[in-house]
Amino acid sequence: MMNVKELSTKLEYTVFALPDPAAQVVNGYTSDLLSDVMGNAAEDSVLITIQAHRNTIAVASLIGIKAIVLCNGRTPSPDMVVAAEQETVALLGTAENQFTTSYRIAAALGIS
């Protein structure tokens, strides 16, 4: 378990929104299909994806996902950042791809 601020600092992510730095994440989910995220992701996860638009925040909020990491250097649309603040979802970014991001987050969270 780790809070989103610690995760962001440890893995040197770009911070687009950090409305609740103390929010705890315990797991991760990697997917670029939002319907798959909606059906299968667990709450208190960090979502690893390239879907850099507002609907991703809505799905995250519905599931109880605490943080989103946008991969491959994708930047969020302005309305996505606003939605992240409103729905209290941390919005982070990295130049790394989904595979690398996934195993680095797994290691940081102590999941093997």
């Binding site: 319907s35 909606m38 059906g39 809505a58 519905l62 729905e87």
Partner: peptide, 11 residues
């Protein structure tokens, strides 16, 4: 469609 209820607040 998936059998999911709408959340009017979010969508």
């Amino acid at each position: 469609l998936p059998r999911v209820h709408n959340s009017a607040r979010l969508f």
